[in-house]
Amino acid sequence: MASVPPRRLSVRPPTPELERDRVVLRWAAVIDKIDYLSMLRLPKTPAGPSDADVRRAYRTFARAFHPDHFRAASQEVRDAAAKVFSAGAEAYGVLSEPLLRVRYLKALAGGQARPRLEDLEKATREDARAAAQPAAALAKTPGAKAHGERADKMIELGELAYAKAALEQAVHAEPGNAGLAAKLAAVEARLYAPRRGGRR
């Protein structure tokens, strides 16, 4: 990279560094408002991106924004890169944690690009607690209970797709039941990825 000697009061042609810095500042200006998928440039499909896609996207993102690449840049650009990278790492954390991911994709579908992470995490903790209980115990009405029992049996058999369908019916029967919704989220999470390292 040839360094151009500074000249006073003259406009220099944009260097690759300058162009890069501009892009970083543009990202930093909007990063607090944009959703996690756009941030990592993942497509918005109904099922959400696969675990492998999320990882690949994050690595590409990190290659572009990690503050290590901006050591020689101005303080402003360095701060901007750190800000963008932090947000992308947060996106990666949410999208690769099954329960958080389900919660987030629901919020996104509901029009919330960036729900507070704090709130998502709190909801997820409740999900985890509810998910530990049988669906039949979470249901209050007889209709939902029947679906719940079926879901529990399917979970026992490892038939998670059927369990999910049964839970969706239970949630439909009792729309306000947060426990059932959480149980559904947990099953969806398990369907999506049995555990973090389980790819390949």
Binding site: M1, P16, E17, E19, R20, D21, V23, V24, R26, W27, V30, I34, S38, M39, R41, T60, F61, R63, A64, F65, H69
Partner: peptide, 10 residues
């Protein structure tokens, strides 16, 4: 909107 490109890493 997210900008359409990523900065190019040196």
């Amino acid at each position: 909107m997210a900008p359409s490109v990523f900065p190019v890493a040196p």
